[in-house]
Structures are given as structure tokens and as C-alpha cells.
């Protein structure tokens, strides 16, 4: 396991426990009276570190190299998954996975960002940052789901849409905008889960759901904290400070009406118990799909439209601006 800076106090004690356990089993002796106090201490340390996470620490957990990705969730709870490839226009973008499978006995379409586990895979998957063809691949899957009346489950985990030459040439902004429009019109239930990074337009492009759920240590932002710090504070290194100001962690977003529910993670974060995390995610998806599948097509479209229609904070001032009427 790899450790983040603030997790490092745990490393020493975890490796000590491991050593003792290996020693005990190799010599076939009982060291549990030695190991147990260490485990107790580990638990209390984990509790202490993870009960008071700062927004920046959650961002780091969302990017943890051992954090489960879309494919890990699919392997855990999607049965008979069939992956489908390509946007039928340009290229198969591996930063996005699409396919069909069943969750708790219900057939669904699945769309999700996919990061790589190692450097090779990350190069192939472009670190989970889609090009326009990725968004068009997602769109193709979602339109197909609409035709075949399959509910859609979207897994969001991307630092953002890829900022590159080819991406702009092929209309990155157009691909994103079209997905936003098309998702708002689909006749089937859409449940989105922010698994890790909810990076900007690249996340939203598969994020227009009837429900948007979010794991406890995920973030969802208009841009990365680094970019925000660079632009607003003119200092990229102040990302940790600005992460708090941006209100990008689940509880803040719940209050702002951006997400509908926070999915709990095991203590220490998803990567410390991927199986349990996946079961929590599955339970959330199934519960919301059960509810949404009972709704009619028009109700689904209306509910989704209204869900996003109502987001925003403003007031009606008593004074208007200067009269522009009669120009």
C-alpha cells in the first residue's frame, strides 16, 4: 500500500504488525498479546486521522493511487458485464468505459471514467482525462440505453476533460455541451456516482443524472484546486488553502443542492477496504434505481430537468440596473 503524507504515521505501525504476524506464523508461536495492543493503537490513530479530514486531505484521498476505480466497482458488483468500444466517429477513447451489465438482477448501461493503475495503463487511458471522442462514446452508449430502455449508471472519476491540441480540434467544448443537452432529454433513469475526482466539465459531461451520489472522500469542482489557486491567488502551491474555500467536498455540496446523497467509505478511505466501499456504492445505486424505475418517462425527464433547474443562489435586488430599455 502507498501512503499519503498525512497517513505516514500509520505506515510504521502497520509494518510492525505485519512483521510480527509473519514472524509468529513462521515460528508457529502466538504473539497476539503483542500484536493486539498495536492493532488497538492503529485503530485509534486511524480514527483520529480520518475523523477530522480537511478538504485538501479528501482531495488527496480522492486521488490516492490505490483508490478503487470504475472497473474495480464493475468487477465487484456488476454481473455479466459486456464492455463496448468506440464512438463510431474517430477513435476508441480508453479514458471512458462503456458497456452493459446487471446490478442486483437489473440490466443497466454503464458509463464511467477510467484511470490507469500503472504508468503504462495511464498512458493508454490518458489518466482518465477524456478527449471529445470519449464523451461521444459515452453519448453513443447513453442514446443506445435510451432506445433499449436501460437505466444508466455513470461513474465519475476524472481530473477533467483533456486540455490538448487534438481535443480542441475535435471540439471538446461541443462534445461536452451536447452531452449535457442530450442527458437532460433521456427517457430512462440516470444515477451518477462521483467515485473520486469530479473534475469540471469532464465530470459533468456524464453527470446529468436524476440522482447524483458521491463517495465520502471524493470532490466535485469547477476546476482543480491547483488551477483555482493559480488563477485566483496567482500561486499554484496554495491549492491546499483554496480547496477549503471552493466547497468541493460532499457535505458542502449536499448543502448547496449539487448532490443528493453521500455514500460512506470505510474508515481510512475506500482503498483500505475496496470491497466494503463497493457494496456501499451498490446499495446506493440499487436503492435509487428501485425508486426511479417506478417513475414514468415524462416524470423522469421532468425530475431531472427540475433538479438542475433549481441549482443556483441569487437574490432579487430592489434596484434594477440602469434602464437599458428603449435602446
Amino acid at each position: 500500500m502507498r501512503y499519503l503524507e498525512f497517513e505516514k504515521p500509520l505506515r510504521e505501525i502497520e509494518s510492525k504488525i505485519e512483521q510480527l504476524e509473519v514472524y509468529a506464523s513462521s515460528r508457529d508461536i502466538d504473539l497476539s498479546h503483542e500484536i493486539q495492543p498495536l492493532k488497538d493503537r492503529l485503530h485509534s490513530m486511524v480514527d483520529e486521522i480520518f475523523s477530522q479530514l480537511t478538504p485538501w486531505q479528501r482531495v488527496q484521498l480522492a486521488r490516492h493511487p490505490d483508490r478503487p476505480y470504475t472497473m474495480d466497482y464493475i468487477r465487484n458488483f456488476v454481473e455479466e458485464f459486456v464492455e463496448l468500444h468506440g464512438d463510431r466517429m474517430f477513435r476508441d477513447d480508453l479514458a471512458i468505459i462503456t458497456g452493459m451489465g446487471s446490478i442486483a438482477g437489473r440490466s443497466v448501461a454503464i458509463v464511467g471514467h477510467q484511470k490507469g493503475r500503472d504508468t503504462d495503463e495511464n498512458i493508454r487511458r490518458n489518466f482518465g482525462m477524456p478527449h471529445p471522442e470519449g464523451f461521444r462514446k459515452a453519448r453513443r452508449m447513453m442514446e443506445m440505453a435510451d432506445r433499449h430502455r436501460l437505466p444508466i449508471v455513470c461513474f465519475i472519476d476524472s481530473p477533467g476533460a483533456f486540455p490538448g491540441l487534438g481535443a480542441e480540434e475535435r471540439g471538446q467544448h461541443v462534445a461536452i455541451a451536447e452531452n449535457l443537452e442530450i442527458m437532460s432529454k433521456l427517457r430512462v433513469p440516470i444515477v451518477c456516482v462521483v467515485l473520486g475526482e469530479g473534475g469540471s466539465g469532464g465530470a459533468l459531461a456524464i453527470g446529468v443524472g436524476n440522482r447524483v451520489l458521491m463517495l465520502e472522500n471524493a470532490y466535485y469542482a469547477v476546476c482543480t484546486p491547483e488551477a483555482c489557486a493559480a488563477i485566483i491567488l496567482k500561486d499554484r502551491t496554495k491549492a491546499a488553502t483554496v480547496a477549503g474555500t471552493m466547497r468541493i467536498v460532499p457535505n458542502d455540496l449536499l448543502n448547496l443542492g449539487v448532490i443528493d446523497e453521500v455514500i460512506p467509505e470505510p474508515i481510512g478511505g475506500a482503498h483500505r477496504n475496496p470491497g466494503e466501499t463497493a457494496q456501499n456504492v451498490k446499495a446506493g445505486i440499487v436503492r435509487h434505481l428501485d425508486h426511479l424505475c417506478a417513475l414514468g418517462e415524462d416524470e423522469l425527464i421532468e425530475q431531472r430537468y427540475k433538479r438542475f433547474r433549481d441549482i443556483g443562489v441569487f437574490y432579487e435586488a430592489e434596484t434594477t440596473g440602469p434602464a437599458l430599455a428603449g435602446i
Binding site: 469530479g198 459533468l204 453527470g207
Partner: peptide, 8 residues
């Protein structure tokens, strides 16, 4: 994120 949602 409120601004981001205005896109949708």
C-alpha cells in the same frame, strides 16, 4: 460547483 451546474 454551482457555476459548473449552470452549464447543465
Amino acid at each position: 460547483t454551482l457555476s459548473l451546474m449552470q452549464m447543465a
